[in-house]
């Protein structure tokens, strides 16, 4: 009964969440993006060092719709978006669920700089539809949506907020630790923040920067200290893809993790993939921001512990 009570208490939040998803759809359909659905159950996925898939029979539940959306892009659908469930084994915390809702969109001919602008336009448009106006009040702070938003490179962020430089953190194998303890808690509080140009070593399928190949053309959007979206200019070279996949599997093997089959059809298609930028945005986390709630549990109807 207590659980039913909790579900009933979520009425207002679930309405707001549904309104937010409707506003996202309106934004993309208004810009002539095609809404697509790709399979959740897939025989091979894009191997990532730190993302563990849920195995399901001989296949996997997808960890993101990236692979098949890129195949659609290659097949000649230049502007596509999808809102779907993704599954990642073992991810559970106040910002993580092992089953969560993702928004992904891809646009042919775009680079990651232009994608930042579209990301701003999306969230401003959703805020307007929800009646939030130019300011989102989140957990006692006020996030101003007036554009343009703050941009800071990863290297600058380390120089400003961290006890060591980005390059040193990479060499000393403590990049992630510094990111969560010194940098993330400083991002996106007075306005949303784009943090960009990540070390190429940790950016699975992002294109390297021409003038500085140790960096990848990748950005993340933060609001209220939370990672909301991850985006990049997409890598299109099939040999580079293959090399990175093998590398990921080597890392996984040496960390005692399962290795993944190589997605062959994807590798064949990617050679013909047009230049494009793509972005994945956590719908649950965006709902946390719009509903002014501190935990992901607060914005979904069910959490795994109560199934």
């Amino acid at each position: 009964m207590e659980r039913d009570g909790r579900l009933a208490d979520k009425r207002e939040i679930l309405w707001k969440r549904a309104g937010m998803i409707r506003a996202i759809r309106d934004f993309f359909t208004g810009r002539e993006y095609l809404e697509v659905e790709t399979p959740l159950l897939i025989p091979a996925l894009i191997p990532e060092t730190y993302i563990d898939a849920v195995a399901c029979g001989d296949s996997f539940l997808h960890t993101s719709p990236e692979l098949h959306m890129k195949r659609l892009l290659t097949a000649g659908h230049p502007k596509i978006f999808q809102i779907c469930k993704c599954f990642r084994a073992g991810e559970r915390g106040s910002n993580h669920l092992p089953e969560f809702t993702m928004l992904e969109w891809y646009c042919r001919g775009m680079d990651y700089r232009r994608l930042m602008e579209e990301c701003e336009e999306l969230i401003v448009s959703v805020a307007a539809d929800l009646g939030s106006g130019d300011v989102i009040n989140y957990q006692g702070g006020a996030i101003e949506l007036q554009r343009p938003w703050e941009t800071i490179s990863v290297r600058e962020a380390f120089a400003s907020y961290a006890p060591m430089s980005m390059d040193k953190a990479v060499t000393e194998n403590c990049f992630d630790e510094i990111m969560v303890s010194s940098i993330e808690p400083r991002l996106g509080f007075t306005q949303p923040t784009f943090i960009y140009d990540y070390p190429a070593s940790g950016s699975a399928l992002a294109k390297e920067k021409k003038d500085e190949p140790v960096l990848a053309e990748r950005f993340e959007l933060y609001m209220g200290g939370k990672e909301i979206a991850n985006a990049c200019s997409e890598l299109t070279d099939p040999e580079e893809h293959h090399r990175r996949f093998l590398n990921v599997n080597r890392h996984r093997h040496s960390a005692g993790k399962s290795i993944y089959p190589i997605p062959e059809h994807f590798l064949q298609d990617v050679a013909r993939m047009p230049h494009a930028a793509g972005i994945a945005l956590g719908v649950d986390r965006l709902a946390m921001i719009f509903c002014d709630l501190p935990a992901i549990d607060d914005v979904v109807s069910f959490v795994p512990e109560f199934l």
Partner: peptide, 29 residues
């Protein structure tokens, strides 16, 4: 104790610990 995972990075556990003798608190990942 909280599970965190910076974009594309590895799973980390941000925790606060209290020394049971001195009472000193600190954060550790």
């Amino acid at each position: 104790f909280n599970f965190v995972k910076p974009g594309k990075g590895q799973a980390l556990y941000r925790s606060k610990l209290r020394n049971m003798i001195t009472g000193a608190q600190f954060e550790r990942t």
